[in-house]
Amino acid sequence: MTKATETVAALGIFFIIYFIFLFGVVPLPDVLQEEIIPVLPWWLLVTFGTYSLGTVGYNVFKFRDCEDAYHELMAEIQLAKDDLRSKGITVVD
């Protein structure tokens, strides 16, 4: 089973269970049925957004400059330009 199939299957099961609880097929206490279940998707969306922003913020905070990678990339670009020039292609610097 591919990762996409697993994800679709998991989301399908989640939505089926959610709609069963939302429409009252399985009886729940009134507080759960009327106040928590209807806002559960928004709560999950806000939680996911918070996690995503926190992860991006943490990674930006911990980001370090990579001088060696920069110089290596510039050398590879120059090598590619030289190769193209040797084949008669005009390359603008």
Rank of each mutant, 00 (worst) to 15 (best):
M1E: 07
M1K: 06
T2C: 11
K3P: 05
K3V: 09
A4H: 04
A4Q: 05
A4G: 05
A4C: 03
T5E: 13
T7G: 01
T7E: 08
V8L: 15
A9M: 08
A10F: 09
L11A: 07
L11H: 05
L11N: 07
G12L: 02
G12E: 03
I13S: 10
F14M: 10
F15P: 00
I17L: 15
I17G: 03
Y18F: 13
Y18A: 03
Y18C: 02
Y18W: 11
F19L: 13
F19T: 05
I20G: 06
I20K: 03
L22Q: 12
L22C: 04
L28S: 05
P29F: 09
D30L: 12
L32V: 15
Q33W: 10
Q33N: 11
Q33P: 04
E35L: 09
E35T: 15
I36V: 15
I36R: 00
I36P: 08
I37E: 02
L40F: 10
P41F: 09
P41D: 04
W43F: 15
L44K: 04
L44R: 04
L45D: 01
L45C: 07
L45A: 15
V46N: 09
G49V: 04
T50Q: 08
S52A: 15
L53C: 06
G57A: 14
G57T: 08
V60M: 15
F61E: 04
F61Y: 15
R64S: 14
R64V: 12
R64E: 15
D65F: 11
D65V: 07
D65R: 14
C66T: 02
D68V: 12
D68K: 10
A69V: 06
A69L: 08
A69W: 02
Y70S: 05
Y70T: 09
H71L: 06
E72M: 08
L73D: 06
L73Y: 09
M74E: 13
A75D: 13
A75P: 00
E76Q: 05
I77H: 10
Q78Y: 00
A80I: 01
K81A: 13
D82E: 10
D83F: 04
D83V: 01
D83H: 08
R85C: 02
S86M: 00
K87M: 06
K87Q: 11
G88S: 02
I89E: 02
I89M: 08
I89T: 12
T90K: 14
T90E: 10
V92D: 09
